[in-house]
Simulated assay, not measured.
Amino acid sequence: MGSIKLTYKIGDIEINRLGYGTMQLTGKGVFGEVEDRENAKKVLQAAVAAGVNFIDTAEAYGPKLNESLLSEALYPYKDGALIATKGGFNRPGPDLWVPNGTPEHIKENIESSLKRLKVNTIDLWQLHRIDPNVNVEETLAPVVEAVKDGKIRYVGLSEVTIEQIKQVQKILPIVSVQNMYNLGDRQWEDVVDFTAEQGLAFIPWFPLASGPAKLEGKIKAIAEKHNATTAQIALAWLLKRSENILLIPGTKFIAHLQENLLAGSITLSDEEFETLSNQ
């Protein structure tokens, strides 16, 4: 049985499918400054040193503080790195997320992300949420403009249905979709398959959840067989699920980061994959 392909092309940028998500490098409730800033910078630098070239952040993490931390740790960015960010939320306090898709807010998000990330072009800008109170064409008008002006290279969406993806595709081309998806939460199966058919990347957020208690024994048995952790098996399952899946597990610990990256060396058999898929 062949091993899993561990790279994927977003436009003309070939990236490792095992990336890194920075959400945990913030204060409690994804709000405020990360507790240990020096450690956070070291984790980011260790990720890049280990070959990670796809890093996902957002204006809403902190808010704003996470993007600045990322550029402080990694700028100038390594050749071939793809730094992805997101916009479209207000953050009034810890654990509070309020969609704001007004054109003014989106334009401000893009302009300030460019400054904080210290770039002239954002590699991948993702709409963090579609605001139900604003027409999506209005929300995306500044994004279309920014693409035209060379301020955004590629565009992605987050937490969207197939219908919403199709709606946005009439307005501008997209390259990726970021929805919650993991071994235990598979409500977006149809979106995974749709993005694969469309040649779009699918970026599951919260990829490490290993699922319901009834799966526990199965995962444990497979993990033991591969001399792996349950988290590594959860990631290996995602890598095998579809070739367009890009992983962005986050952590505050270098040891945990290295453990996550080792998931790429685990190839589940078809039988193991089926065992975990059938809940």
Rank of each mutant, 00 (worst) to 15 (best):
residue 234 A to V: 03
residue 49 A to Y: 08
residue 52 V to M: 06
residue 71 S to I: 02
residue 161 T to C: 01
residue 180 M to A: 08
residue 122 I to M: 09
residue 153 R to M: 01
residue 27 G to H: 14
residue 160 V to Y: 11
residue 122 I to A: 08
residue 197 E to L: 06
residue 262 L to G: 14
residue 270 D to N: 15
residue 67 E to P: 12
residue 151 K to H: 10
residue 226 H to A: 02
residue 67 E to Y: 14
residue 182 N to Y: 03
residue 85 T to Q: 11
residue 3 S to I: 05
residue 183 L to W: 04
residue 276 L to G: 03
residue 221 A to P: 00
residue 200 L to K: 07
residue 177 V to H: 08
residue 278 N to H: 13
residue 245 I to N: 02
residue 209 A to I: 03
residue 261 L to Y: 11
residue 235 L to C: 05
residue 243 E to D: 15
residue 277 S to Q: 10
residue 39 N to Q: 11
residue 210 S to R: 15
residue 26 T to M: 11
residue 235 L to T: 07
residue 192 V to E: 01
residue 155 V to F: 14
residue 245 I to S: 03
residue 269 S to Q: 10
residue 138 E to C: 04
residue 186 R to F: 03
residue 170 K to R: 13
residue 214 K to R: 12
residue 92 P to H: 12
residue 15 I to C: 09
residue 239 L to Y: 13
residue 67 E to F: 14
residue 175 V to F: 09
residue 98 V to N: 10
residue 137 E to I: 00
residue 56 D to K: 14
residue 192 V to C: 01
residue 46 A to H: 12
residue 129 R to V: 01
residue 210 S to L: 00
residue 101 G to K: 13
residue 95 D to Y: 15
residue 173 P to G: 03
residue 42 K to Q: 13
residue 271 E to H: 15
residue 176 S to E: 02
residue 219 I to T: 05
residue 275 T to K: 15
residue 131 D to N: 09
residue 226 H to S: 01
residue 183 L to R: 01
residue 26 T to K: 14
residue 201 A to P: 04
residue 217 G to M: 08
residue 27 G to S: 10
residue 43 V to R: 13
residue 198 Q to S: 07
residue 275 T to S: 08
residue 143 V to C: 05
residue 120 N to H: 14
residue 61 Y to S: 02
residue 251 T to M: 11
residue 248 I to C: 07
residue 104 E to H: 13
residue 19 G to I: 07
residue 228 A to Q: 07
residue 237 W to L: 00
residue 244 N to L: 05
residue 182 N to C: 05
residue 197 E to W: 07
residue 182 N to I: 00
residue 40 A to Y: 14
residue 265 S to K: 15
residue 111 E to C: 02
residue 44 L to E: 06
residue 90 N to G: 00
residue 66 N to S: 06
residue 48 V to H: 13
residue 45 Q to H: 06
residue 151 K to T: 00
residue 151 K to F: 05
residue 259 E to M: 13
residue 39 N to A: 10
residue 256 H to C: 02
residue 269 S to V: 08
residue 248 I to D: 03
residue 60 A to E: 00
residue 134 V to H: 15
residue 110 I to Q: 04
residue 173 P to C: 04
residue 176 S to T: 08
residue 19 G to K: 14
residue 79 D to I: 07
residue 45 Q to T: 04
residue 126 Q to S: 12
residue 190 D to Y: 06
residue 207 P to L: 05
residue 177 V to P: 05
residue 271 E to I: 12
residue 251 T to L: 12
residue 229 T to E: 09
residue 189 E to A: 01
residue 6 L to H: 10
residue 258 Q to E: 15
residue 254 I to L: 05
residue 18 L to D: 01
residue 206 F to V: 04
residue 204 P to W: 07
residue 230 T to Y: 10
residue 93 G to M: 06
residue 148 K to S: 08
residue 54 F to W: 08
residue 216 E to W: 13
residue 263 A to D: 05
residue 50 A to K: 14
residue 189 E to D: 15
residue 52 V to E: 04
residue 152 I to P: 06
residue 28 K to C: 00
residue 217 G to P: 11
residue 199 G to W: 09
residue 131 D to C: 11
residue 64 K to Q: 11
